[in-house]
Every structure is written in structure tokens, then in C-alpha cells.
Design a protein around this nucleic acid. Structure first.
Lengths: 133, 133
DNA sequence: AATAATCCTATCAAAATGGTAGGAAAAGGA
DNA sequence: TCCTTTTCCTACCATTTTGATAGGATTATT
């Protein structure tokens, strides 16, 4: 039940952009050094963000990344679901077609639903903007 | 961010004991077949429960396991922390000595604290008894 | 003595995690 | 045009975790 580096680095990357890009593109290398993270690994994480349209990229010298929306328009849930996959605590809650045959008689399902609600209650109501002081 | 089979099987095992043991020991084999779980694997999960004193065991014929407390005295949090390890969503919240050097300037820490609180709010207030209808 | 159950340890395949590495492609400046 | 700088893309890899299987030792009952 841990959030992996993928999700955590994605949040820190976007947060770093929000803070350090004044309209100008920010290089992965700079974020990586500020965040004390492997830049080659961060590159892979950012690639997912880029493909999903979470960031805009500029290639070549003076290139880098910028946010494609306002900080308050990124929920932590969006970022984590993109990078970590579904955030449901059990697989049977993750997708519609993943319902198991025991669902009807499963007495732990209500527990997992409550836990899922609690998690979503936090990650879907917190945005990047909330993390910037 | 998934609860693994270890934690889920442990809950289902204890729940099965609560339902099917009328004072008498319940065999792993029977639980495993009712729960459609590998009995040799369940054995290993149960061994953790036994060593922690969550269940009493009786060896030999007519042996098996019984709950060592009342169902309402087992919180889901106790069971999951025992079998899954710490349930904090990030390592730096898991133990006292795990605090990272960036904690002071870490702007994601409040998020993880809120998420941790939300998770504990569910798992520490739900007991086995709540899952028995 | 045979049987039935827990107990204990070793092993293992597959997947996930957290990277490293190297080069291709694009864009800018000299 | 050429060099540099950046993103982009893909392959590979070591370690750990996950979810088991397997086999036998130990204990207790009949």
C-alpha cells in the first residue's frame, strides 16, 4: 500500500514546474537536480505526463517543459491514476469488468469501498495549487 | 497502492473463523476451500497471525484455529499492519527514524499525512465484527 | 501404530520497482 | 552548414515483492 516513486516524482515534477517556470520552459535536468532525483528516470516519468497532455514540451536549446493548465486544475488523483494506475485498494474495485464471482457474498467488499472512498476523498479534492504555499 | 493477498487472506481467514468456529477449532483446509484459496499459501499467512497471538492453534486430529479475542477486538488496521507491514502511503511516514532530510521543505508531506489519516480513519475504526452481517 | 493436523523451511516463477544506457530527432545559434 | 542542447524513444538490468508450491518435522488423537 505504498505510492511508488513514479507517482511521487510526477507530483514533484509538476509542482516544480508550477514554482519555477515563469512562462518559460523548465529543463528536466534542473528539476532533477533541485529534487535530487535521477534525471534519466525522471525523463521516463515525464514522458507519461507529456503523452497525457499534462505538460507541454519544447525541444532543443532553451527547451524544457511547461504546465498545460493552471495548478488548481490538476488533482492529485488525476496525476496518481495516470502514473500509478488505478488507485483502488483492491483489483475488484478498479474496473467494471474486474468484478469477481464472489462479489455478491463478499463481506469485505464494503470495507474496500469505504477505504476507496476515503482515499478518493483526499486525492480527488487536493490540487497542485493546494501544495504550493 | 493495492492491499496484497497476504492482508486480504488474513482478514478472510479471521472472518471465516468468526463465522464457522462455534468454540471448536477450524482447519486451514476447510477455510481454504470455503474461501477458494491455496491452503499451503494460507498456512503461511496464518502462521503470522499465530505468532502475533491473533489466533490460538490446536495440533493433531480435530485441531485447527480459534480466534483469541472477540471479533470486535480486531481492527482491520491491526490485521493489515501485521500482514502487510506499515500502511502509511509513503515510507517517510512509516517510522520515526525514516524521516528524510527534505521533510522540512517537503511540500507533499501534508498531502501524504492527510492521505494517511484518511486511510487510518477507515482501517482503525472498522473491526471484524463490522464485517459480519 | 496410523492418521490428522499444525509447524517450519526451502524453492521458485512472474511481476513490479527503480533505475542505467545509448542513441535518434528536433531546434537553435555560430 | 555544423555544433550544441534539449526532448524523445527503446532496450536492458538488478533487486525486491508477490503469490505461490513442495516436502518433511512435530504434535496429538484414536
Amino acid at each position: 500500500m505504498k505510492v511508488s516513486t513514479k507517482g511521487r516524482y510526477a507530483i514533484r515534477f509538476l509542482l516544480d514546474l508550477a514554482r519555477n517556470s515563469q512562462g518559460k520552459p523548465v529543463r528536466i535536468k534542473d528539476v532533477a537536480s533541485r529534487q535530487e532525483i535521477s534525471d534519466k528516470y525522471l525523463e521516463q516519468v515525464v514522458s507519461v505526463l507529456q503523452k497525457a497532455g499534462f505538460v507541454n514540451s519544447v525541444r532543443g536549446p532553451q527547451g524544457g517543459y511547461t504546465l498545460s493548465r493552471q495548478p488548481q486544475e490538476y488533482t492529485i488523483g488525476d496525476i496518481l491514476r495516470l502514473t500509478e494506475g488505478n488507485m483502488a485498494p483492491v483489483a475488484c474495485l478498479a474496473e467494471e469488468d474486474n468484478v469477481c464471482q464472489r462479489a455478491g457474498q463478499c463481506s469485505t467488499l464494503p470495507l474496500w469501498k469505504k477505504l476507496d472512498d476515503a482515499i478518493r476523498g483526499v486525492i480527488d479534492t487536493t490540487t497542485l495549487a493546494d501544495l504550493i504555499e
